[in-house]
């Protein structure tokens, strides 16, 4: 999984033009001129610590948890649903309970699983901000938060999906799900052809983040 962040970001320093272990360029934020909003973050954090609202340890732990979550968690849920019809039924009926059953913390949010088939393709957006099943997929990708995706996918989903390399036949119905503050969607991609002999672990390794947002479909395997 290309965006599986295992390394520790807490001690992230600027390394010029080098790439980070996950293959992205380092950002200049640490060494660039302090911005107004960064000043506010530092002030807010220090005030909350001074007043005993949060501790530095809680902040560190929260960031570590955030770094540990990745699309691999969502992939395990999808792979289970593919191999276990009973689990699939429970996931479709009550996503929140079904992911808790696998040991994932659903938080306060309701998780709704939607399933892609030959006839129906689901894609998820948050037009208001960036609501995302972060407990299952980690933090949202940059494009999910950007204006281009949020404004256009509800209006011209076929064109947007094409930009992700996803061509859908005209007879496939597209359902765009707009997330809300307390409802998050997980797309269960269609199990690709050629995977009949794979076990749950190998299946999970095939399932990508973008397929669970619904901007791509999984390619058939040989």
């Amino acid at each position: 999984m290309p965006h599986d962040h295992e390394h520790n970001h807490i001690h992230d320093h600027s390394h010029g033009d080098q790439l980070s272990p996950s293959g992205h360029p380092y950002r200049k934020d640490q060494d660039a001129k302090l911005t107004y909003w960064q000043t506010m973050e530092i002030a807010m954090r220090e005030l909350l610590i001074e007043k005993g609202v949060v501790t530095p340890q809680e902040i560190t732990r929260t960031i570590e948890q955030m770094d540990r979550r990745s699309p691999a968690d969502g992939a395990k849920v999808v792979a289970r649903a593919w191999v276990d019809p009973g689990y699939r039924a429970r996931l479709m009926a009550d996503g929140t309970a079904a992911i808790a059953e696998m040991g994932f913390d659903p938080g306060a949010l309701r998780l709704i699983a939607v399933e892609n088939t030959d006839q129906i393709h689901n894609v998820v957006v948050c037009t208001l901000c960036s609501c995302y099943p972060r407990n299952l997929l980690g933090l949202p990708p940059d494009w999910y938060k950007q204006r281009a995706y949020r404004s256009r996918v509800v209006k011209t989903p076929r064109a947007v999906l094409r930009e992700f390399g996803t061509e859908l036949a005209d007879n496939v119905q597209i359902r765009v799900h707009d997330s809300t503050a307390d409802m998050r969607y997980l797309v269960v991609p269609a199990r690709p052809k050629g995977t009949e002999k794979l076990d749950e672990t190998d299946l999970a390794a095939l399932i990508t983040r973008d397929s669970m947002i619904g901007v791509t479909r999984l390619a058939p395997q040989k």
Binding site: R27, A148, R150, V154
Partner: peptide, 15 residues
């Protein structure tokens, strides 16, 4: 924001 016109989606990621 939903439904407004905008440019192409740039599918890039960041740390």
């Amino acid at each position: 924001m939903g439904g407004l016109d905008a440019g192409p989606v740039v599918p890039e990621d960041q740390d």
